[in-house]
Each structure stands twice: as C-alpha cells, then as structure tokens.
Simulated scan of single mutants.
Amino acid sequence: MNQDQATYDAFSKAMEFWSKLWRQNYEQSLAFWAMMGQSVPRASARELAAEAESMKSKT
C-alpha cells in the first residue's frame, strides 16, 4: 500500500505540473492572439461589432 501511495503522489505532482504549464501556455496564447486581433484593421466599427457579436454567440 505504501508503494502505491508513493506512485500516486508522484503521478499527482507530475499531472499538476503539466496542467499548470498547459494553462500558462494557453493563457499566453490567448493574450498573444488578442493583441494580434487588435492590430488587424477593420473597414468599419460596424464590421468589428458584428464580428464581436458572432464570437459571443459561439461561446
């Protein structure tokens, strides 16, 4: 039983590490694409508003 607990603890710590790493990568990717999206020119404010509304309905 003690060996099983040690294995579980090691696995748990490894999964926690990789989950945190994945989350940080995901958040940084979102921040990057948000910055890129702000720099893309739009023909009009109406076009930008329509795009924002379509994104809201997808989530």
Rank of each mutant, 00 (worst) to 15 (best):
E27A: 11
L21N: 03
E53P: 00
F17W: 12
E51W: 11
P41Y: 02
A52N: 10
N2P: 06
W22A: 12
M36H: 12
A50G: 13
F17N: 12
S39G: 06
L48R: 10
K20D: 15
R42N: 03
M1G: 01
S12T: 10
G37L: 08
N2I: 09
N25V: 10
R46C: 04
M15L: 01
Q28F: 08
K56M: 10
Q3H: 08
N2C: 03
A52F: 01
E47P: 01
E27Q: 14
A14N: 02
D9G: 00
L48T: 08
Q28G: 01
A6C: 04
W22E: 08
F17T: 08
W22F: 12
S19V: 03
Q38P: 12
S19M: 04
A34H: 06
E47W: 01
K20N: 04
S29H: 04
T7H: 14
K56I: 07
E53L: 07
M35V: 02
K58P: 02
E16I: 02
Y8Q: 05
K13S: 11
A34F: 08
S12A: 01
E53V: 06
L48E: 03
A52I: 11
A43T: 15
F32C: 02
Y26R: 13
M55I: 11
E53Y: 00
K20L: 05
E47S: 13
L30E: 12
A10P: 00
D4T: 14
T59H: 13
L21V: 06
